[in-house]
């Protein structure tokens, strides 16, 4: 998928094409693997909150309020890989 292909999908509101790309990106070219990777990241995040540990909501809200949407989107991708790595099950060939 070229960037042009993705931009046209955005313009035409073809979210399925965008979702497929995200899965392919996160699954190193394997759409099913990418879907599992997304689930894995969310499960890992959920597990960390089940005991309701103290968290820094001021930091979270400050980040959400003070950073650009693009920075937050970039952070979102970083967080995905952070939780995937934290899960201990790493499907990628290389390292972050």
């Amino acid at each position: 998928m070229s960037l042009q292909y993705l931009k046209e999908a955005v313009a035409n509101n073809e979210n399925e094409k965008l979702i497929r790309y995200v899965r392919l990106h996160l699954g190193d070219g394997n759409e099913a693997a990418g879907r599992k990777e997304i689930d894995k990241a969310w499960v890992e995040a959920l597990k960390l909150l089940l005991d309701v540990p103290p968290t820094d909501r001021e930091f979270i809200l400050g980040t959400l309020n003070n950073q650009t949407p693009a920075t937050l989107a970039h952070l979102y991708f970083h967080l995905h890989f952070y939780f995937v790595q934290r899960s201990g099950v790493w499907i990628h060939d290389g390292t972050l």
């Binding site: 190193d28 990628h92 060939d93 290389g94 390292t95 972050l96």
Partner: peptide, 10 residues
Amino acid sequence: EIHQIKYPTT
């Protein structure tokens, strides 16, 4: 060091 996840680095 290597920072890359798209090729086998073993």
